[in-house]
Write a protein that binds this DNA or RNA. Structure first.
Length: 461
RNA sequence: UCCCCAGUAGCUCAGUCGGUAGAGCAGGCGGCUGUUAACCGCCUUGUCCGUGGUUCGAGUCCGCGCUGGGGAGCCA
């Protein structure tokens, strides 16, 4: 009895001329009197392996009745295919139905809309598109770790549950064990001192602040974990639960930060082109026609850097009409970002040194006292993909900024302590993993690049 | 949260001027074929999202609601 090999190996010709064993799920079956063909997929690669079954097999009639979606094991000889359409195929000696699938199997051998496939998220990974998406997602996640490992970055697991309600990045989901029907009250308010953590707790909206603490010990660190936002955002780019990558470097300024972001992003573009060719070809053909050229261009270009002030100037002089106003002091809208990266630069561009009023309190104040050392990486088609900054390492300046924007320093005493002893100039950035995957695959909805998406009103599966 | 669009067979959709619904695919039966989302013939399938209204009569027009999608805001 041969041991099972993956279809990816079989399609690479491993075991050619010999008996092999494969196991997978039937994508389509074409049965006739003289011969039956099964297209089998086990998730190891995009392509199916064609199984050829002949009437001499004892259970040939049963084989012909196998439905789309059934799990089968096939023992047979791997041979070169006499017909066009595939290089290799397996001539079955034995076909065993491991798990049958009847006609009610919701995934038909035809095109479905992404909306419908979202309603069967438990089955959609068995489709072409989602097979490709989740192979790429896995591969890119591993490449992220490899990138940082190769550069000596420490991988830190920052907490999922936090009691600091002032991380400053949106609404938090509450974490509590109090009885929602009858919470303990103190002067009319919920008494969270009697809650599990003796404080109001929530799910993290960012691991950055804790990441900074680790950077002040390990020099270069990164986080890569789930992040939660309780915003009622109904867009193709927002999810309530998503994964974020946040590197942080001690003894680093904004330019070092931008250099890392550029190296990182180009590394990942190169990675999908090199490691996910078959899946990328599918995306390029069926999802986003210009995808490979665009990813190739990013992988090969060196990124421009533009001051926020210059960006405003360029936008003011633009001949196209924008829906939203352009003025120094206002944030850039997606339409502005895309104009800058697509029309002005024609490639990825960092916009740096934004007005302090539109950026977070922890970003380092520049000498002009008007701007902070922030950077956004803008890329064609999507706009901002990476946001980062040099952090304010001077205790009194940081305290001043917190007072200015109304952040309560009490809950962040530990964060301020990192500026009290051995403070260093440091910088980091954040990258939404799903948005990265969208950019690398051409998929246009975040719900279609995360296995089981959580969005307002949706937490099924 | 605001704005716009949509909801008809298991899936993807059509449905004219308001007159009780149709195609392709899927499924069933038969045929044919080293086939390629095979092909050919026959057959089955409906709470037309819900609700109220206008009308002799509503899938179709109007109000409200629900659900989904897109745009915006927020943001990664």
């Amino acid at each position: 009895m041969s041991a099972r090999i993956r279809i990816r190996s079989a399609l690479a010709g491993e075991g050619l001329g010999n008996e092999i064993m494969i196991k997978g799920w039937v994508r389509t079956i074409r049965a006739g009197k003289e011969v039956a063909f099964l297209a089998l997929n086990d998730g190891s690669c995009f392509a199916n392996l064609q199984v050829v079954a002949e009437p001499r097999l004892a259970n040939f009639a049963d084989i012909c009745a196998i439905g789309t979606g059934a799990a089968v094991a096939v023992r047979g000889i791997l041979v070169e295919s006499p017909a066009s359409g595939q290089r290799y195929e397996i001539h079955a000696e034995e076909v065993e139905v491991i798990g049958a699938a009847d006609e009610s199997y919701p995934l038909q051998k035809k095109r479905h809309t992404f909306e419908y496939l979202r309603s069967i998220a438990h089955l959609r990974p068995r489709s072409n598109t989602f097979g490709a998406v989740f192979r790429v997602r896995s591969s890119v996640a591993q490449a992220v770790h490899r990138f940082f490992a190769e550069r000596g970055f420490l991988y830190v697991h920052t907490p999922i549950i936090t009691t600091s309600d002032c991380e400053g990045a949106g609404e938090m989901f509450r974490v509590t064990t109090l009885d929602p029907a009858a919470p303990p009250l103190l002067e009319g308010e919920v008494d969270f001192s009697r809650d599990f953590f003796a404080a109001q707790a929530g799910l993290t909206v960012s691991g950055q602040l804790e990441g900074e603490l680790f950077a002040q010990a390990f020099s270069d660190i990164y986080t890569f974990g789930p992040t939660f936002r309780a915003e009622n955002s109904n867009t193709p780019r927002h999810a309530a639960e998503f994964w974020m990558i946040e590197p942080e470097m001690a003894f680093a300024d904004l330019m070092a930060d931008a250099a890392l972001a550029e190296e990182f992003f180009r590394y990942l573009c190169r990675h999908v082109l090199d490691a996910c060719g078959e899946d990328m070809a599918f995306f390029n053909d069926h999802i986003d026609k210009g995808l490979i050229a665009r990813v190739e261009q990013v992988a090969n270009s060196s990124f421009a850097i533009m001051e926020y002030g210059e960006a405003i100037e360029r936008l003011t002089k633009a001949t196209v009409k924008f829906e939203y106003p352009v003025e120094w002091g206002l944030d850039l809208q997606t339409e502005h970002e895309r104009y800058l990266t697509e029309q002005v630069v024609g490639g990825p561009v960092f916009v740096i040194n934004y007005p302090k009023y539109i950026k977070a309190f922890y970003m380092r104040m520049n000498d002009d006292d008007k701007t902070v050392a922030a950077m956004d990486l803008l890329v064609p088609k999507v706009g901002e993909i990476i946001g980062g900054s040099q952090r304010e390492e001077r205790l009194h300046v940081l305290e001043g900024r917190m007072a200015e924007v109304g952040v309560n320093p009490e809950g962040l005493w530990w964060y301020l302590d990192s500026r009290r002893w051995g403070s260093t100039p440091h910088a980091g950035f954040g990258l939404g993993f799903e948005r990265l995957i969208m950019n690398l695959t051409g998929m246009e909805n975040i719900r279609d690049v995360i296995p089981f998406p959580r969005t307002p009103r949706h937490a099924e599966f």
